[in-house]
């Protein structure tokens, strides 16, 4: 059963089309990576899916309703979003930030959720640190923990929800990138649907069972990593000539880029 239906979605700002006739469905528990070059419309797609902006035309249905049709509070129990950059101007502690994911709820159950989420992102023992004093990667992991708490609360209320990630690994070191992938897999195993914008094609292949390729606001490819991440797609969409191989055991593609080509129109 699909939890998310996107049909003929277009977003225009002035005369510029950011998204143009995009359609796809996502089933519950699927992990989807969205890839594409800068300006392809990835972030716009995520903003539409999260309910932040309304489509110019076409429909998005999340749990059978347009995101805008939900009250923000109800929507927050059904989808959680991890943005690329979150700046916190006031000296909140790590625990205070993570607890924010739980909304108005307080108490032992929430503390346990926060504890588990911090452990999952390898930040146990950071509770009382002021978030501004942490490194960029650590801050990103704190926000991931906050989003996990929000997901857990939503799961209690309405069952597994939708997790939207905007370049979640951008500021993480290699080990924590893989940690994040495995946390995303655990979420998916419990039924959470995961959609992530990923720039690193190798990580996209590793994380997702399905890859959506966007190019100039249009859907360029949609399918399993082995079908979508190949040298012709990489050449056409990114303008990069590369060697694409398969990892021996997992059968997951990996990309070794070696030269930028002139983009074919």
């Amino acid at each position: 059963m699909s939890v998310l239906k996107v049909q003929n979605l277009s977003v225009k700002v002035g005369a510029k089309r950011l998204l143009d006739g995009v359609s796809f469905c996502v089933a519950q528990g699927e992990t989807v990576a969205v890839i594409g070059p800068n300006g392809a419309g990835k972030s716009t797609l995520l903003r539409v899916l999260s309910g932040e902006i309304a489509p110019s035309s076409g429909t998005v249905l999340l749990g059978g309703r347009a995101p805008q049709a939900w009250q923000p509070r109800e929507l927050a129990l059904r989808r959680a979003v991890l943005s690329q950059h979150v700046t916190v101007t006031f000296p909140f502690t790590v625990l205070e930030i993570v607890r924010m994911g739980a909304g108005d709820r307080r108490g032992k159950a929430i503390d346990a959720m926060a504890e588990a989420a911090l452990a999952a992102v390898d930040l146990s023992g950071f509770h009382d640190r002021i978030i501004g004093t942490l490194s960029g990667g650590e801050q990103q992991r704190v926000h991931f923990a906050r989003v996990m708490v929000q997901l857990a609360c939503g799961e209690e209320a309405h069952g597994p929800g939708l997790l939207l990630l905007d370049e979640p690994t951008a500021s993480l070191d290699l080990r924590h990138q893989l940690d994040l992938v495995s946390v995303a897999h655990q979420c998916a195993a419990r039924g959470t649907t995961v959609i992530a914008i990923v720039h690193d094609l190798n990580l996209a292949a590793l994380m997702a069972e399905r890859v959506i390729v966007l190019s100039n606001g249009r859907l360029a490819a949609d399918g399993a990593p082995s079908q979508t991440i190949d040298d012709s797609t990489v050449a056409q969409v990114f303008g990069v000539s590369s060697a694409v191989g398969l990892m021996p055991q997992a059968g997951v593609p990996f990309v070794l880029p070696h030269r930028a080509e002139r983009l074919r129109a």
């Binding site: 923000p72 943005s83 700046t87 994911g101 909304g103």
Partner: peptide, 21 residues
Amino acid sequence: GRGLDLLVLGESEAFHMGIAV
């Protein structure tokens, strides 16, 4: 009070967490 707390993370984040910003 809670809305202002979440707003500290940014307007988008506050909306993502259920605030009618």
